[in-house]
Design a protein around this nucleic acid. Sequence first.
DNA 1: TGTTAAGCGAGACGGTACGTCGGGTCTTGAG
DNA 2: CTCAAGACCCGACGTACCGTCTCGCTTAACA
Lengths: 194, 194, 194, 194
Amino acid sequence: MNMVDTNSGGRPMNSEAGPALLQAARELVAEYGYEKVSMQMIADHAGVGRQTAYRRWPSKAELVLEAFVAKADRLSAVEQGPVVEMLERFLQQIFHGLEKDGLAVRSLIASAQGDPAFRETFYERFIKPRDQVLARILKQGVDQGELPASMDLDRMVEMIHGAFWYRLLLGRDLDERYAKQLAAMALGYHSGAR
Amino acid sequence: MNMVDTNSGGRPMNSEAGPALLQAARELVAEYGYEKVSMQMIADHAGVGRQTAYRRWPSKAELVLEAFVAKADRLSAVEQGPVVEMLERFLQQIFHGLEKDGLAVRSLIASAQGDPAFRETFYERFIKPRDQVLARILKQGVDQGELPASMDLDRMVEMIHGAFWYRLLLGRDLDERYAKQLAAMALGYHSGAR
Amino acid sequence: MNMVDTNSGGRPMNSEAGPALLQAARELVAEYGYEKVSMQMIADHAGVGRQTAYRRWPSKAELVLEAFVAKADRLSAVEQGPVVEMLERFLQQIFHGLEKDGLAVRSLIASAQGDPAFRETFYERFIKPRDQVLARILKQGVDQGELPASMDLDRMVEMIHGAFWYRLLLGRDLDERYAKQLAAMALGYHSGAR
Amino acid sequence: MNMVDTNSGGRPMNSEAGPALLQAARELVAEYGYEKVSMQMIADHAGVGRQTAYRRWPSKAELVLEAFVAKADRLSAVEQGPVVEMLERFLQQIFHGLEKDGLAVRSLIASAQGDPAFRETFYERFIKPRDQVLARILKQGVDQGELPASMDLDRMVEMIHGAFWYRLLLGRDLDERYAKQLAAMALGYHSGAR
DNA sequence: TGTTAAGCGAGACGGTACGTCGGGTCTTGAG
DNA sequence: CTCAAGACCCGACGTACCGTCTCGCTTAACA
């Protein structure tokens, strides 16, 4: 999935080419969508030969996946204060990221569907980190007594995460207001029905 | 979206070709996924010329979309009884449908990402009907006093619907147990946060 | 080797595309040489899609071969008069053709070397016809008493034909003067040594 | 054309690399033909880095050329006795060499066509030496009175040399019998027709 | 009943991207 | 300065699929 760099002897791989390709993939796919971007475009935009891309990733899909997956790592997690505020901040942060990359991420999910391995990577590197932050926030809410101890955290994570994905995939807006609404939903929950 | 049939004079369209194509699209895409299936394959499998498909749908995407969208219409809605039971039945019904078509539906969502018009159709024909049923069920729950009147129904619909899509797209199981859990989540909700 | 045209049902092949491709191949290879001409160039020059070329010939080599082989057929043979004059006319005619196509023919021979089937075709369609004309001329010379009956005609054909190929491949001029010299050589022959 | 070796200071060139490359080129091209052999193959076969080859020759063509050209130098010329016998010996010697290298030489000629400089080298190093031996033999024949003084020696050289090239390029056998026939042809010649 | 206009299977067409290959150059660390 | 290794740029190769087009044939509905 990642670039191979077992380099004994021989000219070392150009360490700028990889990042430049990822960057190019990010920008182009964000602007035009996965299907409309070719390897040639990405390579050109990165100022690099097409073969250089294929030397690092086995296919366009893998390259583009890594391009977006890489960003997921930089999730700053300011996790303190009332749950509702943490949630709002978290969601707004994600929504902000998706303003730019929404198209790309949607394209990626799309492409992930044909390839289980690809999909697993996508989950591990892109989704899971966010799920974990979300789970931590909710857990904290329970600890702080703001959420009922009985809450099924995994389910709630899925519902929150799912809700905005759902909107994303359908091309609906993800704005500040929606972040507040979603955060409020999580809070308006108690252990037993009635 | 569907086949045009304003046909005066000339040979009438073969009324079996359309359904056969839909059926073929359904089967092939369900098995191999959208990207790996070509129009040629679909036409061959339907025992029909390729052009016959293009005479009915403007593109592969539209044909395949319709192939799955068509099934959505047959949502039997036995909408009475306690909310939790209605929800469970509803979800189980959907999950059952997705057992077979999961791959296809995922592929479709994927492909929808490059084409806003396609996505809108997908929403209108595939998602919206389900959303409406879900909304009706929740509304009924409110009316029956099982759910708080303050509940943001649209949001709850998104969360429920989003949750299982989320799992679907990530290749997680959608089983009876999950239907129960999701239904329970909706019920464990009250009007005001602490 | 030749274009396939077993056409039952379906759109007929564009009858202009084949000749246009041959023509384009002829012109481009004559000007730039085999190696420097790509399929894309040929297709573009013929105003045709690249795939249309590959539908008719399995490879660039086959297409270009046929392009030059085709011309060989139009050998006008004014075969009468003194042998020396027939020979001169014949050689001048060939030399004239090679003025334009020399580079191409050389390229072709080059490419033929890697592929026995290709080479055989080249011989049958390009060389043999010329050999036969040459043999006929010499035979007539014998019949007319201008050449000794003992002459090994096949050998003489090879020597004449070989001589100017030799010069061609080495990039030496093939002009009117050389035609005369070669014709004279054939005549200056008698049955027994001494 | 040959390896540069103005080497003061620094590691000396590996004196085995050059010969090893020539040998490898000879073997591989003789077996597979010029086009089907890559520099990588040659270098690997010689147990040498690819760059080491390019340090000695400016291109694949030049290396392979030299590989075969080198052999030309070892033309032992036992030039005495009756012309017909000298010719036969000379031709048989050449034919023998071509038994093994025929494919390679043909490939070379082929590749020479795209590059005038290459072709000139090929002539100078590979053809000319043979032409000169041939010319010397014929000259001797004239001197010994076995051939007419009027014979156009250059033309006769071209015809003899051309004849067997012609056969070589067309994949025809070059055997002892053919050597005799060709020698006989040269002898059956007199100054003026009739 | 014969015309006619459209549907139909087949398959060619222009276009565009894919992933692979080879040539010749450049760059590392070791010798 | 050489060497082996191997990355680099370039550009061609042949394949696949898309959506369109065009052939000869078939098939109702209209005249």
